[in-house]
Amino acid sequence: MLWQLPFVVSVALVAIGLYICIVKTNMVKIVMGVALMESGANLFLVALGYRENGTAPIFYQNPNPGAEMVMPTTQALTLTSIVIGVATTALLLAFTVMLYKRYGTVDTRRARRLRE
């Protein structure tokens, strides 16, 4: 039962992140929301690969060749998604800082010059 708790938490993280993205108007806060959503997705993937009583997927440390290991593929996927996450976070923050230098605000209600 308990190994399903991480799924609940991952969905909660995505929901909190989405809430921040929709409700908050401060751009730095919005980027924090995006970072939380990415964390939620990472937790989802790692929890997906978990097998109860499995060991870490390190081949030569496994004392008993028959023992079950957790799935290594999802961990590789998570690593990739962490890399992408840090790149997007840095890019979004760089845009925020540059926008502040041009507009003098990071509030999405006031930093809107592109309109329909």
Partner: peptide, 22 residues
């Protein structure tokens, strides 16, 4: 959850670098 690789990466990136750039 038996994912030491991901734990190291998340500690290095998420806890240290992301906080620093924020």
């Amino acid at each position: 959850l038996q994912a030491p690789d991901v734990a190291i990466a998340e500690a290095g990136v998420g806890a240290a670098l992301t906080t620093a750039i924020f």
